[in-house]
C-alpha cells in the first residue's frame, strides 16, 4: 500500500475501494474508520455514526454484500472491497422496494436507524428471499431502533418478501370505529 509521509512525519496511506459501484482513491491516516471515510471524505452521510462501538448498527454498510458495522472496520481494511451504503440502494431517483415498503408501513420515524435497517434487510432478502418473522428479527437484531418498537419494520421487510410494498388492505375499512 502506497504511503505518503508529511514534514511532521505523519504517515498517510493511499486507499482504493469501490463504493456504490464507483471506484474511489482516498488518502487516509491508519486510524481512520470506514464510517469516517464514507461520511467525511466521500460525503455519504446516509451512514450514521451512533455508538461507534459496534453495538447499535446505525453505521451498517454492506461489504461485498455482507452487513458490517463500518465504525468497527479500519478504512484500510476495506482496500479492494465493494462497499454499498444507503445511497447505493435506490435505483436512480426511484426508491427500492424495501425503501418504499419502509415508508408505506410507517417503519421510519426519526430515521436514524433506517439506513442500517434497510441494508441489513437487503442482505437478508438476498441470502434468504422468504424469511420467517423470526429470521427477520434475527437479521436486524444488530440494528437498534428506539422509536418504532420494530413491529412496522418487521412488517415492511416481510411485505417485500411477499412481493408487496404496502400493508395488506384493511378488511373493515369504512366500518365501525
Amino acid at each position: 500500500m502506497n504511503t505518503i509521509e508529511d514534514k511532521e512525519g505523519v504517515k498517510r496511506y493511499m486507499l482504493s475501494l469501490t463504493v456504490n459501484g464507483d471506484p474511489h482513491t482516498v488518502v487516509v491516516k491508519a486510524n481512520t474508520t470506514l464510517s469516517q471515510v464514507l461520511r467525511n471524505e466521500l460525503a455519504l452521510t446516509g451512514t450514521k455514526q451512533g455508538c461507534e462501538l459496534g453495538d447499535c448498527g446505525s453505521c451498517t454498510v454492506l461489504m461485498d454484500g455482507k452487513p458490517v458495522n463500518s465504525c468497527m472496520v479500519l478504512a484500510l481494511e476495506a482496500e479492494g472491497h465493494e462497499v454499498t451504503t444507503i445511497e447505493g440502494v435506490a435505483e436512480g431517483a426511484k426508491l427500492s422496494d424495501l425503501q418504499e415498503s419502509f415508508v408505506n408501513h410507517g417503519a421510519v420515524q426519526c430515521g436514524y436507524c433506517s439506513p442500517g435497517m434497510v441494508l441489513s434487510a437487503k442482505a437478508l432478502l438476498k441470502r434468504n428471499p422468504h424469511p420467517t418473522e423470526l429470521e427477520v428479527r434475527e437479521a436486524i437484531s444488530g440494528n437498534l431502533c428506539r422509536c418504532t418498537g420494530y413491529v412496522h419494520i418487521v412488517e415492511a421487510i416481510l411485505a417485500v418478501s411477499e412481493g408487496r410494498t404496502t400493508p395488506p388492505e384493511e378488511t373493515n375499512a369504512g366500518g365501525e370505529a
Partner: peptide, 9 residues
Amino acid sequence: MASNQIRHL
C-alpha cells in the same frame, strides 16, 4: 454470538 454485523467481522 453478538450480531450479524459483528459475526461478519
